[in-house]
Design a protein around this nucleic acid. Structure first.
Length: 622
RNA sequence: GCCCACGUAGCUCAGCGGUAGAGCACUUCCUUGGUAAGGAAGAGGUCACGGGUUCAAGUCCCGUCGUGGGCUCCA
C-alpha cells in the first residue's frame, strides 16, 4: 500500500488505532513512556511545520521526557522553542488520533526518498526488516515502532527545555544535528514538581555554591583542575582522613607512587594502545612520559618489588595520588568532570577462593561509608561481555561469587548482562541524592588480565607459583566528584564534622572579643574548627553572615554570657538553642565530630522517580 | 574535539555604535549595637584576549581562550 499523505489518512481497514490494539491496562511507567514518545512526535510535527525542509532523525522518550534530533537550515533560538511549543499545543488541542499501520520496506523507502528524509532511509535500511511501521497524528507521519497514546489530547503536561547539538548516531564523524529536549508528565502537577526540582538543582549547583562558600575555583590557566580554597580543602582533608581511618581499620596498606611514567609502563598495561589519547604526555631526553591516568599499572610495579606468599593474601594496597586525564575540553564540568583528580583507589590481590569474602568486605566498607552521608544506593552486577579475555569457567565462578557476596550483605542487585569489562566482571554502586538524582560512585572490578600482563605471582601452599586476581575498587569514585555530589546533596550545608568552620563565636561588642578568642583557643584544643567574628558589626549582621556561609553552629557572647559563663548557642538549621556552658558546648560538638554524625536535615523534593525508573526496561526494545 | 549560547568591577547583573553603571562585597571614618543587612565617604574596569569594519566599537564582523547546555537513554 501507499502510505497516506497528510490529507489522505490510512483506510480504516488497514489503519489500526492504539485503542483496539491495546486493551490491557497500562502501567504508570508504560503510560509515561507513551506520553513522552508521543510528545516527541508532536514536536517533530511542529518543527516540520516551521521548517518544511527539516530532516528528521530520531525522537525517543528518555527519563523525565523526550528529545528529537533534526537537521535544520539554521540554528534554533529560544524564540523558536516558544513557537514550537505553541504549535504543539495546537496539535494537542486538535485531539488527533494516533494511527499506525504496516508498510512494506520498499514502499517505506520510497516514501521517505520522495521527501528527502535521508536519516529515516538509513534507519529503515539498517533495520533490515521486510516491513516497518508508520505512525500518524494529524498531518504528521513518522517511522516508528510505537506504541503511542491514543489521541494527542492526552498530552497534557510538557515543556521544551533546551536545544543542544548531537551527532547523528552519536558518531563524531557524522553530521551534527540539533536536538530539542523536552519534559513530559501525565499531569500539570507532576510537571510543576519536576520543574521545581530543576530550579532547586540550579540553586544548589556545586559550582555556584563553591564560589559562594569560597570552597574552590577554576582558572583558565589550568582548565578542568580545581583550585581548592582553605574551606574546600578542609572538606577534602576531612574526607581523606575518614578514608584513611576506614582503610587502616580494614587492613589496607597505603603507598604513594610517582605521577609520571615512561610510556613503556602503559604499553605493558595496554593503556597506551587504548587510552593514549586521554593521557597527558611529556618529552624528556627523547623519551615519552605520561602523567598517570590511573593507579593500577604502577601498583603492579609495587607488587613486583618482592616475592609474595599465599599467606599475605589478600593484600590490600591503597593509593590516592593525583591522576590526570586529558578529557575533551567540552566534556569538563565543574567538579563532576575534571582533568586532575584523586581516586580513593585500592587494589586487592587475592586468590580465587578469596574473591567472595573480600568482595563482601569491600561492600561492607561502602555501606558504612555511604551511611555517613545519608545516601541510599543501588547495586548493579555487570557480567561477561561478548568480547572478553580469560577462562569462561573462571568468569562464571567469579560472577557467582560477586552475586553471593552482595546477597550475604542483605542487598538486592540488578544484573547488567554483558556489561562487564573485557578483563573481568564488576559491581557498580549508584547513589541517589536528596533530589533523587543518581550518581555512579563506588565500583568494584575484578581483573583477570592485568596480573597476567605484569606476570604477577605468589607462591602457593604447594610451593608452586600462581597468578593472583586483582580487585580494583574505589568507594567515593574520586574525591573531587564526590565533594561535588555532596555539596549538591546537602545544598552546601555540611554536617558538623565536615563543615569547614564548625562554630562561629559572635562577640556582641568589642569588649567581649578577647573572651571569645580565649574560648576559641580552648575549643581548638578539643578539635573544633572555630572562628571568631570580632568585626565591629551588629549581632544581626554577623549572624546573617554566618547563616549565609552555612556555618552549622554559632555562639553569641555578650556581657550576660560572660557573667553567667553560659554561651547562647544557635544552630544554622534551628536557630536559637538556649544557653550552654563552654564545656557542654565543647562536648556537644566534639561528640558530633567524633561520631561523624550526619546532623543535616536534607531538604528533599517530591519527585515521581520510583514510578518511572523502569520505563526504559519495560519499554519495547526498539 | 564538535554544535549552540555566553564572557562588562571580587560576586550578581544593567548598558547593545557617541565621554563605563547599579546592588552586594572591599577600604576608611562614625556607631559598641542582643539572634538574618546601622550610617557616611572612598577605592575598584584596556568592557576575556587578538585582529578587522567605522569619524567613533562593551556594543557590528572574524579568530583565539575560557565558561555553560549537549554530543545513542539509539524508529
Amino acid at each position: 500500500m501507499t502510505p497516506p499523505g497528510p490529507d489522505d489518512p490510512a483506510p480504516a481497514s488497514e489503519a489500526m488505532s492504539e485503542e483496539s490494539a491495546a486493551p490491557a491496562p497500562l502501567s504508570h511507567a508504560e503510560r509515561l513512556w507513551r506520553i513522552r514518545h508521543s510528545c516527541a512526535h508532536v514536536m517533530a510535527q511542529a518543527v516540520q511545520e516551521i521548517f518544511p525542509e527539516a530532516k528528521l532523525a530520531i525522537g525517543p522518550p528518555i527519563s523525565d521526557g523526550f528529545y528529537y534530533d533534526f537537521d535544520l537550515p539554521r540554528p534554533l533560538t529560544p524564540d523558536d522553542l516558544e513557537e514550537i511549543e505553541e504549535r504543539m499545543k495546537r496539535v494537542v488541542k486538535g485531539n488527533h488520533e494516533f494511527r499506525t499501520w504496516e508498510v512494506p520496506r520498499e514502499e517505506a523507502l520510497t516514501y521517505f526518498r520522495e521527501r528527502g528524509q535521508d536519516y529515516k532511509i538509513e534507519l529503515i535500511e539498517d533495520l533490515g526488516e521486510e516491513s516497518v511501521r508508520f505512525y500518524q497524528q494529524d498531518t504528521f507521519v513518522d517511522l516508528c515502532a510505537g506504541p503511542h497514546v491514543r489521541r494527542t489530547g492526552e498530552l497534557k503536561a510538557f515543556k521544551l527545555l533546551k536545544v543542544a547539538g548531537a551527532y547523528w548516531r552519536g558518531d563524531s564523524d557524522r553530521p551534527m544535528l540539533q536536538r530539542i529536549y523536552g519534559t513530559a508528565w501525565k499531569n500539570k502537577t507532576d510537571l510543576a514538581a519536576h520543574l521545581e526540582q530543576l530550579e532547586e538543582a540550579k540553586k544548589r549547583d556545586h559550582r555556584k555554591l563553591g564560589r559562594e562558600l569560597d570552597l574552590f575555583s577554576f582558572h583558565p590557566e589550568s582548565p578542568g583542575a580545581p583550585f581548592w580554597h582553605p574551606r574546600g580543602w578542609q572538606v577534602y582533608r576531612e574526607l581523606r582522613r575518614l578514608w584513611s581511618e576506614l582503610h587502616d581499620e580494614a587492613g589496607y596498606v597505603e603507598i604513594c607512587n610517582p605521577l609520571i611514567y615512561n610510556k613503556s609502563l602503559f604499553e605493558k598495561s595496554g593503556h597506551w594502545e587504548h587510552y593514549n589519547e586521554d593521557m597527558f604526555k611529556l618529552e624528556s631526553e627523547g623519551e615519552t612520559f605520561c602523567l598517570k591516568p590511573m593507579n593500577c599499572p604502577d601498583t603492579m610495579l609495587y607488587y613486583k618489588t618482592r616475592r609474595h606468599s599465599y599467606r599475605e593474601l589478600p593484600l590490600r594496597v591503597s593509593e590516592g595520588q593525583h591522576l590526570h586525564r586529558n578529557e575533551l575540553s567540552g566534556a569538563l564540568n565543574g567538579l563532576f568532570r575534571v582533568r586532575q583528580f584523586a581516586q580513593d583507589d585500592a587494589h586487592i590481590f587475592v586468590t580465587e577462593e578469596q574473591i567472595e569474602s573480600e568482595i563482601s568486605n569491600v561492600i561492607k566498607l561502602i555501606d558504612r561509608l555511604y551511611g555517613l552521608f545519608g545516601l541510599s544506593y543501588r547495586v548493579f552486577l555487570s557480567t561477561r561481555p561478548e568480547k572478553f579475555m580469560g577462562d569462561p569457567a573462571l568468569w562464571d565462578r567469579a560472577e557467582a561469587d560477586l552475586a553471593s557476596a552482595i546477597e550475604a550483605n542483605g542487598l538486592e542487585h540488578r544484573v547488567k548482562e554483558g556489561d562487564g569489562a573485557f578483563y573481568g566482571p564488576k559491581i557498580d554502586f549508584e547513589v541517589t541524592d536528596s533530589l533523587g538524582r543518581k550518581w555512579q560512585c563506588a565500583t568494584i572490578q575484578l581483573d583477570f588480565q592485568l596480573p597476567l600482563r605484569f606476570e604477577l605471582t605468589y607462591t602457593d601452599r604447594d610451593n608452586q607459583p600462581r597468578t593472583p586476581i586483582v580487585i580494583h575498587r574505589a568507594l567515593f569514585g574520586s574525591f573531587e566528584r564526590f565533594i561535588g555530589i555532596l555539596i549538591e546533596h546537602v545544598a552546601g550545608a555540611f554536617p558538623t564534622w565536615l563543615a569547614p568552620v564548625q562554630l562561629m563565636l559572635l562577640p556582641i561588642n568589642d569588649a567581649c572579643a578577647p573572651a571569645c578568642h580565649e574560648a576559641a583557643a580552648s575549643l581548638r584544643t578539643a578539635g573544633v574548627r572555630v572562628e571568631v567574628d570580632d568585626r565591629s558589626e551588629k549581632l544581626g549582621y554577623k549572624i546573617r553572615e554566618s547563616e549565609l556561609r552555612k556555618v552549622p553552629w554559632m555562639a553569641v557572647v555578650g556581657h550576660k554570657e560572660l557573667e553567667s559563663g553560659l554561651f547562647s548557642v544557635r544552630s544554622w538549621q534551628h536557630g536559637d538553642q538556649g544557653s550552654m556552658s563552654l564545656d557542654a558546648l565543647t562536648t556537644m560538638l566534639s561528640e558530633r565530630i567524633r561520631e561523624r554524625a550526619f546532623d543535616v536535615e536534607l531538604q528533599t523534593i517530591a519527585w515521581s522517580e520510583d514510578e518511572d525508573e523502569d520505563v526504559l526496561e519495560t519499554a519495547p526494545s526498539y
